[in-house]
């Protein structure tokens, strides 16, 4: 034990739903290998899944050269995560408000989507988005 520098987990993926699934499975393996399987991994996987799926469905929609780069650092009981992608910018250059869809409604009107950003905002903190050299850069922190 001691103060050795932690090695971040980094991976790159293409902008497809199957690549997102593969990346999340890889993250599980790597965190397990580092003995960090219990460090709030469930919530991290939920948040990363929503963030990455949003990148695939919006920022990289219709692109064949879409690329996503993820960096997760586990340190001081926190996950610090940075997600970069080479897709189009967020609408108005800002993160979506993430208002949870209303489920107090009739069966026919129940929402089948729109939950992604509300989940992210409920589970992650210190969300920050910026545009840097034609890349989207999203960072956030979670307990870990």
């Amino acid at each position: 034990m001691g103060t050795h520098a932690k090695t971040p987990i980094q991976f790159e993926l293409q902008g497809t739903p199957h690549a997102v699934r593969a990346a999340l499975l890889q993250l599980r393996e790597e965190t397990y290998a580092n003995g960090e399987a219990l460090a709030n991994m469930g919530s991290l996987e939920i948040v990363l899944g929503e963030v990455l799926n949003n990148v695939v469905e919006h920022a990289l929609a219709g692109r064949v050269d879409g690329l996503i780069v993820v960096r997760c650092l586990h340190e001081s009981s926190e996950w610090r995560v940075i997600v970069r992608d080479n897709g189009i910018h967020m609408p108005n250059g800002k993160l979506p408000p993430g208002v949870a869809p209303d489920v107090d409604t009739t069966r026919e009107n129940l929402p089948e989507g729109g939950f992604g950003w509300s989940l992210v905002r409920m589970l992650a903190r210190d969300l920050h988005y910026e545009r840097s050299a034609d890349w989207n850069v999203l960072s956030f922190t979670m307990d870990g």
Binding site: I46, E50, N53, R107, L110, P111, E112, G113, F115, G116
Partner: peptide, 20 residues
């Protein structure tokens, strides 16, 4: 052991398509 919001939406859709 994992579901995302798309999976959740698919379960809601499956419920709706059963009929009331």
């Amino acid at each position: 052991d994992f579901i995302d919001s798309s999976g959740l939406g698919a379960i809601v859709a499956a419920m709706k398509q059963l009929g009331s």
